[in-house]
């Protein structure tokens, strides 16, 4: 079982959770990133995710190994969707099981943060007005001209 993977089909949360069950673990924390209907003042109608999977899978595995090293966690997995997603769809899932809860919370947070910042995954948003754009690419070029700091707080 790969600890980091992509999926072109909807995620089965029950099966993912079950895969982290461990009799030595008293704590389980998961994070779900959902497709939201707005971003930076625009109404979002749907998303597309694209990934450079060959490299992203390696880097995702490195992120999980780092979390294991830093927080001493027992089990962790992360699955990221690619392809077209509708509103409310589950875009990314992270799960961590570990003997005690504190490490589970911290490791889960570490994994999602690093995955967002390091893995070659891109998100194209489609807007209600018919426009579309690659997040952090086209819209950052505009950001420079309106002197507006972009913080992307989606999942």
């Amino acid at each position: 079982m790969k600890r980091f993977a992509f999926s072109a089909t909807p995620l089965d949360v029950a099966a993912l959770t079950a895969s982290l069950r461990d009799v030595s673990c008293g704590g389980f924390v998961s994070f779900e990133g959902w497709v939201r209907n707005h971003n930076e003042g625009q109404r979002v109608t749907r998303l597309e995710y694209e990934a450079f999977e060959q490299l992203a899978v390696k880097e995702g595995e490195r992120v999980i190994a780092e979390a294991q090293q830093r927080f001493g966690i027992q089990n962790a997995r992360c699955v990221h969707r690619v392809g077209a997603l509708d509103l409310e769809a589950l875009a990314v899932w992270v799960g961590v099981s570990t003997p005690h809860r504190d490490e589970a919370f911290r490791a889960c947070r570490y994994i999602i943060d690093e995955v967002k910042h390091r893995l070659p995954i891109w998100k194209k948003e489609h807007y209600a007005n018919g426009d579309s754009g690659w997040v952090n690419c086209e819209r950052c070029a505009e950001a420079a001209t309106v002197a507006h700091e972009h913080r992307h707080e989606h999942a």
Binding site: G33, Y49, A51, F52, L55, A56, H80, A91, V92, I112, V115, K116, H117, R118, L119, P120, I121, W122, K123, W134, V135, N136, C137, C140, H152, H154, A155
Partner: peptide, 10 residues
């Protein structure tokens, strides 16, 4: 060679 644009996973 791959040129990697700014990423936006999650």
């Amino acid at each position: 060679v791959v040129f990697i644009p700014p990423v936006a996973g999650g």
